[in-house]
């Protein structure tokens, strides 16, 4: 098993942009796409940044864990952004080794007692400044050709065409977050510090697999240990003020 990442750039970028067919194509400024390098996998190298969870099945535990997990990941597999649509973001699970694949064969998903996979996030955005600049260029060309300024309707139509053109040319920004799941201890590590992304991944896994994620926080660990909640109110001497006992009854955020 090799862990080197990297993938053909063509598929990741959604292929080279097709030749523009509208009148605006000639006015567009060509922009070079950034080089795509193999991504460093936090699971394998570099500083360790992760959020830790304990997993419990919401209903009864599956009999064939491996099959169940593969099916769950496939249910939330990554689908690239449809360039014809308006969507700006696509997310889903991919193989750790190959962020272009969501096949999850056992040989590439399971590693000893671990399941290793990744969550891919693609975003595609048309920069407002680029759209404005291209529109101004088009308007100038239109005026030169027709001897008048474009009408509001013509401008609106052209804006849509230019947006679509820029969208076709834009390179999606791809980021992936590694996930390691110890199937023996039922502990999951999400290798990211962004709470927003971590929450998105736990929600996707909970939805796809019918499990419940519990953050390994002191509050959740106290609950697991069966410690009486009344013994865990805020310590006024340390906090410097008395806080109402009811305040601590709020929802435990550890439950993702």
């Amino acid at each position: 098993m090799s862990f080197r990442g990297g993938a053909p750039a063509g598929r990741r970028t959604g292929g080279p942009p097709g030749k523009a067919r509208t009148a605006t194509s000639s006015t567009l400024t060509a922009r070079r796409s950034p080089p795509i390098l193999p991504r460093p996998m936090p699971v394998l190298r570099g500083a360790v940044t992760l959020s830790r969870f304990r997993v419990e099945p919401a209903k009864e535990a599956p009999s064939d864990v491996k099959r169940w997990l593969t099916r769950g990941l496939k249910a939330h597999a990554f689908e690239p952004i449809d360039r014809r649509s308006e969507e700006e973001r696509a997310v889903g699970f991919v193989e750790l080794e190959n962020e272009e694949s969501s096949e999850f064969p056992a040989s590439r998903l399971y590693y000893g007692e671990y399941a290793l996979f990744a969550f891919r996030i693609d975003t595609i955005k048309v920069p407002a400044a680029a759209l404005k600049a291209e529109l101004a260029k088009w308007a100038a060309a239109f005026e030169k050709e027709n001897g008048r300024q474009p009408s509001r309707g013509e401008k609106t139509q052209s804006r849509g065409e230019i947006r679509q053109m820029l969208r076709n040319r834009a390179t999606p920004r791809t980021s992936t977050v590694d996930v390691s799941w110890n199937l023996k201890t039922q502990q999951v590590q999400i290798w990211s510090a962004s709470r927003k992304v971590v929450d998105e991944i736990t929600v996707a896994l909970e939805g796809g697999l019918g499990v419940k994620f519990f953050g390994l926080t002191p509050a959740s660990m106290a609950q697991t240990a069966g410690i009486d909640e009344s013994a865990l109110g805020p310590t006024a001497e340390l906090i410097g003020m008395d806080l109402p006992a009811t305040a601590s009854e709020e929802m435990a955020h550890g439950e993702a």
Partner: peptide, 25 residues
């Protein structure tokens, strides 16, 4: 959340990539 950030692990002893992954985990 008791998240771990910018964690440094001890130097790995293994040489093979597969073993390194195991050791790191």
């Amino acid at each position: 959340f008791l998240d771990i950030r910018a964690g440094k692990l001890p130097a790995l002893m293994s040489e093979e990539e597969d073993d390194q992954l195991s050791e790191r985990l």
